[in-house]
Design a protein around this nucleic acid. Structure first.
Lengths: 201, 201
DNA sequence: TTGTAATTTCAGTAATTTCTGAAATCTATA
DNA sequence: TATAGATTTCAGAAATTACTGAAATTACAA
């Protein structure tokens, strides 16, 4: 491995974490080296940096492209493929979240939907189906929120994150305001989530 | 495998997804069977349900306990260990998030902190360090939000999720209100979370 | 204590995943 | 269309991870 100590420790860490994140050591290392590099790199440069085989790098890059984690670039007068990670790291988070949802969540949601169509053959099945239904609803709740948030531009996303749980205070305030006597309360009686406010101020 | 068709399809799916989620097939299946079961199960019952070895179940249960995904129970006049998943599935989500953070995020945060202490030995290192610093800050932002949200009780958490991106509307409303002339504005002046539109409509 | 049921450990094996080097394929241009 | 550079494919090897059965340990009751 042919890297400065600083980058090397970063690369080795990504390699080790790879298995926890569902990628191989080499794929983790390739990603790390590209992330830390100031310029796009081609496959041979990655081979030189990591000391793994050319074919392994080729396969790793394919996988990273499938994950939408690296982008292909071309330099003028150079036929080789160069790769980069997005400059904007929030774009990286968005891509990562999207791909993980696609691979790790959506298939389960789909299975749960199927299972809800089946009819139970015993008391235990009735219970199991109820449990799966709860899981289904919970995942839909989470992915629904995720899809909403994924739509936000980065500035607003950061605002939302920084606010964190303090958003609760804002909601409480909203409740006090929208529930003032004499004001039309547009929320349905048992739905605490409707945002009124279109005629506030 | 000795399970109703409905539970069996659920169990097989969890087994297959296991590798994507960072657990083995057996561990995924044990979890699924416990999740869908109306009552606590002991190791032999799990062996009967899944058709894997007793020792494999023992190891799998150990791992699930380490993940805080199953709880040990004891029945009166029975020395055997029984296992359940929490009834409240939001508790499951909280545990899962906590454990994944601990294993998949915290070590990286720690490494990044270390790397920020080192001093760069080249221009490329200066760039790399900047990049790692960005990654560090982003992860802190996300985990900070996560820790805030983890503190919310389930009801409020659900409210927050249901609101989704619509929270933006509430924020806009809050801004209009807190920035009303004559009202004390408690937000810090350079807090970029203020959403514009303060004088819209 | 002794005996028995329950659980865990662990060495060996099986299964899976990752990696390599060689061959095949693709791509641009001479 | 020939040639050389670049990339991909793929069969087998290497490494890692998962699983089993037997032995060891633990926990409790007689």
């Amino acid at each position: 491995m042919n890297l400065s100590p600083m980058v090397q420790s970063f690369v080795l860490h990504f390699g080790e974490m790879g298995s926890r994140w569902g990628i191989s050591r080499t794929v983790g290392q390739i990603y790390a080296v590209l992330f830390a590099a100031p310029d796009p790199m081609n496959a041979d440069q990655i081979v030189a940096a990591l000391g793994v085989s050319r074919s392994n790098v080729s396969m790793g890059l394919k996988e990273l492209q499938a994950w939408n984690l690296v982008h292909l670039k071309h330099l003028p007068d150079d036929r080789r493929d160069y790769f980069t990670t997005p400059e904007d790291i929030w774009e990286i988070v968005r891509n990562l979240a999207e791909e993980r949802k696609k691979r790790e969540v959506d298939p389960t949601l789909s299975l749960l939907r199927d299972v809800m169509m089946q009819n139970p053959t015993s008391d235990a099945d009735v219970y199991a189906q109820g449990r799966m239904s709860e899981m289904h609803d919970l995942i839909e709740q989470l992915t629904g929120w995720y899809e909403d948030v994924q739509k936000l531009d980065t500035e607003r996303l950061i605002a939302l994150l920084t606010l964190g749980a303090k958003v609760q205070k804002v909601l409480d305030m909203k409740d006090r305001l929208t529930l003032l006597p004499g004001r039309k309360n547009k929320t349905k009686p048992d739905n605490r989530l409707e945002v009124a406010g279109k005629d506030s101020a």
